[in-house]
Amino acid sequence: MLKIRNLHAKIDDKEILRGINLDIKPGEVHAIMGPNGSGKSTLSAVLAGNEAFEVTEGEVTFNGKNLLDMAPEDRSREGLFLSFQYPVEIPGVSMVNFMRTALNEHRKYRGEAPMSASDFLKLMRDKKNLVEIDSNLTNRAVNEGFSGGEKKKNEIFQMAMLQPKLAILDETDSGLDIDALRIVANGVTKLKSPENATIVITHYQRLLDYIVPDHVHVLYKGRIVKSAGKELALELEEKGYDWIKKEFED
């Protein structure tokens, strides 16, 4: 589904990604871990098409198409979803209006007619229940005045609405209390299917207790320096990153 080959990217002449290679197949969950500043969020931003970063080398194909050639909105319409670490507020724009516009753009891209208002509201209700999101959140402006936890729930709600093929969760667990973490993680798990894949970017093992990864990668200094099964996350939790850094420096 997603193939990353030798990906390099920089911001303001500072190289952040220095040759990433990664293969993700449908149905898989990949966890990307690593110390602060290793390039985890940059990787998600580059995949989503954030123009603040410049790709200097490498290739990324998404379902056979050249991802790096696509505008950010087309990447979304092709089924790539990014759950933001810091979702922005858009004052005055209601969630209902926002989601309806987004969903219908996706449908238009696929050559489908816009969804009727009643079908849309029904879909919203169903998905709200799935992520246990408060009704009144969807009546408010996008993320405006939401608490940290509410913003993250809202990201997963949007993911449920858009049903992406590949979801990238960028530190979705940060700032969540234990109940919110469970709700968010359960939401993600319920959305899993053999056809879609998930990349979970996190610092901590605790999210992986709920969203069990098939593969765990450690990102350090812009490269994936270690890949293994889910047991790697536990090892990191126990021993920290120092041993990996050491292994890498040697």
């Binding site: 989503a48 098409g49 954030n50 123009e51 603040a52 505008a71 950010p72 909105e73 990447r75 979304s76 319409r77 979803f81 990014l82 933001f84 979702p87 922005v88 858009i90 004052p91 005055g92 724009v93 209601s94 209006n97 926002f98 516009t101 987004a102 969903l103 753009e105 996706h106 891209y109 402006a141 949007q158 858009l162």
Partner: peptide, 29 residues
């Protein structure tokens, strides 16, 4: 904000649509 536009882009909205949506939100009152 470019971050607002990018957020909308990431949900499938073109930049022009994103601006229209944000401006309409801004003047709604």
């Amino acid at each position: 904000g470019e971050d607002q536009i990018f957020y909308c882009n990431q949900r499938g909205l073109s930049t022009e649509d994103a601006v229209a949506l944000i401006v309409n939100g801004y003047v709604k009152e």
